[in-house]
Amino acid sequence: MPMLDLLVKFGIYAAMIISIVAAIGVVTLRSLFHAALALAAVLVGIAGIFIALRAEFLAMVQILVYVGAVMTLVIFAVMLTERLGDKTVQQNNQQSWLALIGIVAFVSILARVIMQAPWPIQPQNANFLVDTAMLGKVLLGPFVFPFEVISVVLIAALIGAIVVAKGDRK
């Protein structure tokens, strides 16, 4: 089976390269619409990496929620404010310093995790599979409180959206 392993590796690297190239595209493309599409490609690539890590459920939810729903709404917003995608509008703003601080913080956390991991990861360490049933039990068991908090936040967002929409109508 060495050939198959090679194919799988090829797939993983392809997913990674697609997500990195598309991520670069997201920040460099002039057209806002193209940037949004590139973001969708990033998310699909990440779903591919999830599949390679044998987390099919996560991959599918990634596609369903991010590509199918969130990206759709993002593109909807882009289309409704089409002037933003014009080439004459400046694409960056004054918040690059704040963004840099955020990125440094995020990268430092990532670096910490990577440094702490026992490289190379042994197969026996990574042998547990999280299947859908386990995920469901965990979400409704130990993690039920954060789960419910998130749904409360979502409800708040929904109500807020309705209030904003109603206010417009006057």
């Binding site: 699909v44 596609i63 369903l64």
Partner: peptide, 11 residues
């Protein structure tokens, strides 16, 4: 998978 993949048609 079916639901997720068919939802990408929107894009």
């Amino acid at each position: 998978y079916f639901i997720a993949v068919s939802s990408t048609t929107t894009i």
